[in-house]
Amino acid sequence: MHLALPVVLAALLFSIGVYGVLARRNAVLVLMAIELMLNAVNINLVAFDVWLRDTLHAGQSLTLFVIALAAAEVGIGLAIVLQVYRLRATVAIDDLDQLAEPSPEERR
């Protein structure tokens, strides 16, 4: 099998995930895009493991770990999103800018 196929798939999937992170307004949608990026990484890991065939099976083992980590990360991420929703009644990224540098009027 041509190795370029899975690796290119991973690259494109990653880029789509990048677009999603930067373009989506809802925080949950951003989390979804992050999952896409993680999947791309996984495909890469598996493809290289199949290519290199090392004794430790590092690629596929690490893929399992990444999947578990992704699950933990989504859990925490959603917990944060829920807390933000409770406090601000919105999860739109555009509206969450309290850490901005205050403008001169606001400074006074």
């Binding site: 930067l22 800018d97 850490l99 901005a100 540098e101």
Partner: peptide, 20 residues
């Protein structure tokens, strides 16, 4: 500094865009 401080928009996507 006042001009540069406008970079601190507080918007996470803006920061992420910059980094990426």
């Amino acid at each position: 500094s006042r001009r540069l401080s406008r970079l601190q928009t507080g918007n996470v996507q803006f920061y992420a865009t910059g980094v990426l």
